[in-house]
Design a binder for these strands. Structure first.
Lengths: 342, 342
DNA sequence: ATCAAGACTGGGAGCGCTCCCAGATGGGCA
DNA sequence: TGCCCATCTGGGAGCGCTCCCAGTCTTGAT
């Protein structure tokens, strides 16, 4: 008898024969179903170990219609943005959280061109049971394409331009910006600028608009005090230069990400501004390897990507288990971590 | 007729029936095999589109024994190191290069505990056709476990402690360190320190030993001029402090990564050292979003993760195509990009 | 007119697994 | 003693696809 056909890999049949039981019993033993005698189970497990047996996942998922894998999709039309530490944190959290519920993460980047079609083909092909999707850009066609998918999908942050009918786990961007600006007002600042993120992303729009409305509510004037950048270090550096050139009298700045704040800090230091004495700085993200190690350490609005991903995984698993969860926009709280910069 | 059984997904059989041909002909049309009439092909394609048909990958790979997916495995026993920009670059490059050859990347992190067993189970399960593996730590048990795998594997950088019999694509760490130190010697520096990477990684060991031997060859004394750090910003910062405390007279430093150089730069600046006048700095990696934007911009040894991954993919595809490629340690050249810091 | 070679088609087998169902066995209780 | 139920087992079907093989139909050369 030639075990496992032509490529030398043992099959369940081989294990069963080796253990002296039927294929069915072997299957039951391996999947620890009920109704297998201890003796059979023991023999099967030993046989599997002896032969170096691993179940063929293709065969298994052909019948169970489950793959045990979940896609984590990061849609980023502009490739350069993937150095974003927030994205890195999301990937790590995704891997961990999915591993904890026994699922394998399949990471996919979508950055334009061919990618959308290939991504859809992959997802439709049944390679994965569901998807966690980050598609922050409003013009991104991915979320709409995903709506036609016969597979549960949960979004992290706003799903492109889609406003309802999808599962979303977002952070309280407005609340975070409000906290930051209020703190700056409370410590006596009156000319509070902002470096906003790219305005094609909902999160960035929310932080900017909340900055503005909080200023107005405090009786302060936002005119000329906003600059847009692209969430990168150099973007933040240049935006800060522009702000300084236009409003040299600013005494505080709310920066929409840690990375941009790092750039802004550099510009401010080079311009001879003392932080926080001359200019107070508050950023957004509170990334562990950025905010605390800056000089001075940054006061930052803390958002926890792991909590976000965990929530997304919980929803997805519920969906997969057949629960009726109605699509909604869940908002996770953020908090302010005060350090020296403000 | 109920198409696609119970979950509403059309099968090849449904497409064939809809197009009025047999399952075989439909299969041929979809996989553009030879011997299908233009008319049949057209009908089948139209039917597939009308029904929203996507082939079931489990069924397909059950018979073809191919999944179209490749694992990218990043083994990092210490979780914190995953902010490493080099790793990020590798992930992006992996995704791109694999997409270009029509394969889907399945990203896996292995950071201890349960992970090794789960990773092996996944790889053995036939979820992927092969693996690209980064396991730089010498004590890492993963490479040895991988040797028993019935699946082609290509390593990026040294494979743990394994010295032969595996496919490796590495960079010329020794040559790079030599270039850096020689450059520092040429511009007249005589007290050339180094901040080495963690010595449980072969690449870091090579850079350190090459720093030492190049110094000796130039008639300079390496005593007291080496410090070890962990490839992080704070690690580099602290190592630089220790060096300065011990040898305040140093006039150059070769730092084994951009990220550590960023930390070292901060320490040097705070200590009032002018760069490059008082202390010249050369780093390793030349990461696009780090080295050029530092203050001053860093002279750095350039290594191209994308080129490395491309080479790895080429080898893996060759292996998959059944070519007889004998395992060897391929070394990719590195070059020096000179900027202001040295 | 005859035949061979090519072009094309459809049916059947089978990939390795899970699940359903029928059957065998062995108490516990009337 | 008979009978039922719970426990355990093995065989068969079938998941959706690809591949092989036996056909049919065309074409062109003899």
């Amino acid at each position: 008898m030639i075990p496992g056909g032509d490529d030398g890999r043992p099959t369940l049949e081989d294990v069963a024969a080796f253990a002296g039981v039927s294929r069915s019993t072997a299957s039951r033993a391996l999947n620890d179903d009920a109704y297998v005698s201890a003796r059979s189970k023991e023999k099967v497990l030993a046989a599997a170990k002896d032969l170096g047996y691993f179940p063929n996942q293709a065969a298994r998922s052909l019948v169970t219609r489950r793959t045990g894998a979940i896609a984590l999709v990061l849609s980023e039309p502009e490739a350069r943005l993937l150095d974003d530490p927030y994205r890195t944190a999301v990937m790590r959290a995704g891997y961990r959280e999915l591993a904890d519920v026994g699922s394998q993460m399949v990471l996919m980047f979508v950055d334009g061109g061919e990618d959308l079609a290939r991504t859809m083909r992959f997802l439709e092909g049944g390679h994965v049971d569901g998807a966690l999707v980050f598609a922050p850009h409003r013009a991104d066609p991915l979320p709409k394409a995903l709506k036609g998918l016969r597979m549960p999908v949960v979004f992290g942050g706003q799903a492109g331009s889609i406003r309802s009918g999808v599962h979303v786990v977002d952070f309280d961007n407005k609340g975070g910006a409000r906290q930051a600006v209020r703190h700056l007002v409370e410590i006596g600042r009156t000319r509070i600028a902002t470096i906003a993120g790219p305005q094609d992303q909902t999160a960035a729009v929310q932080r900017l608009s909340s900055w503005r409305s909080t200023l107005l509510a405090a009786g302060l004037d936002p005119a000329e005090l906003a600059e847009e950048a692209d969430f990168t270090l150099t973007g933040g550096r240049d935006a800060m230069s522009r702000l300084l050139a236009r409003r040299g009298d600013l005494d505080a700045v709310f920066v929409a990400s840690d990375m941009m704040a790092a750039g802004a800090l550099r510009t401010l230091t080079e311009a001879g501004r003392k932080i926080p004495d001359d200019v107070a700085v508050i950023s957004f993200d509170n990334h562990a390897s950025l905010a605390p190690v800056m000089n001075p350490p940054l006061t930052s609005i803390h958002q926890d990507p792991q909590a976000q991903v965990r929530e997304m995984v919980t929803i997805l698993m519920g969906l997969l288990a057949g629960e009726e969860i109605k699509p909604r926009n869940q908002v996770l709280p953020v908090s302010m971590t005060v350090r020296e910069s403000a």
